[in-house]
Design a protein around this nucleic acid. Sequence first.
DNA 1: ACCTGAACACCGTTCAAGT
DNA 2: ACCTGAACACCGTTCAAGT
Lengths: 218, 218
Amino acid sequence: MSRRGTLTRERVIAAAAAVADRSGLAGVSMRSVGGELGVEGMSLYHHVSSKDALLDALAEWAIAKIDLPPPDAPWREAMETRARSARAVFVAHPWSIAMIESRPAPSAALLTHHDRVLGWLFAAGFTAPLATLAFSTVDAFVYGFALSETNLPFLPSPGAEAEFAATVSPDPGAYPNLSRSLTELLSSGDYTYPSEFDNGLTLILDAIQAQLDATRDA
Amino acid sequence: MSRRGTLTRERVIAAAAAVADRSGLAGVSMRSVGGELGVEGMSLYHHVSSKDALLDALAEWAIAKIDLPPPDAPWREAMETRARSARAVFVAHPWSIAMIESRPAPSAALLTHHDRVLGWLFAAGFTAPLATLAFSTVDAFVYGFALSETNLPFLPSPGAEAEFAATVSPDPGAYPNLSRSLTELLSSGDYTYPSEFDNGLTLILDAIQAQLDATRDA
DNA sequence: ACCTGAACACCGTTCAAGT
DNA sequence: ACCTGAACACCGTTCAAGT
């Protein structure tokens, strides 16, 4: 849309993100990103070496948006902040979820992230096996939850409730437990699916905390 | 590859899965799937209405491969069996991970899955909120773990250790905690990243079990 | 009824040509 | 140095034509 100024690698990546936000990852083509910048698709090759390189850069762009507390932050707060921030980025840019994890080579940005996370845990006295368990479990949860959340409006959430009820209700006999669950959750009044993220995260972090305490006692 | 017999919807879907296994989702085109069957790409339109419909069918094909214990199975065993089976399917067909959750409309197969899972939990005395927490947390973990596992050989695993060490080792000062973690885990001798799946699943299911027991006592 | 060939509007990418 | 137009080998999809 902004067709002024000279092309830079940064402007190309930002334009690609804008196209992805608007049209999904499938809408990102060299020509469409060029169009976003008022330029032919072929011009982009002066700033990125290939479409694949552009996608790698796009993955890094998303990772960089995740809030990463400082190395000396307390482990639990830091893990929560990072998890919530990652989820917010994934919801704002759904195309980034599968992408961050599916680029063939782990980027320097991702390695830095991982190193920082392990730093919080080691500083708190985690052993390497427990740190790995904590890290991989929380990360898997965050990625998987975001994946479900952005693509599967399965449980009540603003706007999705009606759709979901419409899918399940026509034949309650076909999905009796889904119907029951829906009815019970909605009757309680204050239920929203998004709050399940904090519930799950707390469940996992509490369990890890308990294991950490057990390690210390031993 | 098998170019005999008449085309059916099932053969088209199976051919698409074979192409995806071999060349990834990006390698699936109407022409390539046709080629797999010894037929022109245009012929497929007699059996699937569009490429998008073919991808929907492919998602269902993968879901159907996940082992789903009977409605009267004990909840924890059933959840474990389904989780491990889902992970196995995702590892065998990496293209299916993002796909199952990213098709716009939840398929009947997926709704049936969800209903069965809720059935195990309700039979065991879960409240609707606790069932939802259990379900969404376990599912998020399974999806997210599979996503990391197939695309991010970050931690020691057969064959990936060398690569990973090569990425981290050149400059141990850049990733001190990653280096430390790697060293400690490898020195213990029997560590493998894939076993982290069972560890994480157990952590989550133990925590849920504890909440269920607390519910019963109250 | 099922398969095909040509055609259309797209892709990523290369390269010689313009400025 | 940076951008472009034409070209190549691909896409998904339509449709008239073949069997």
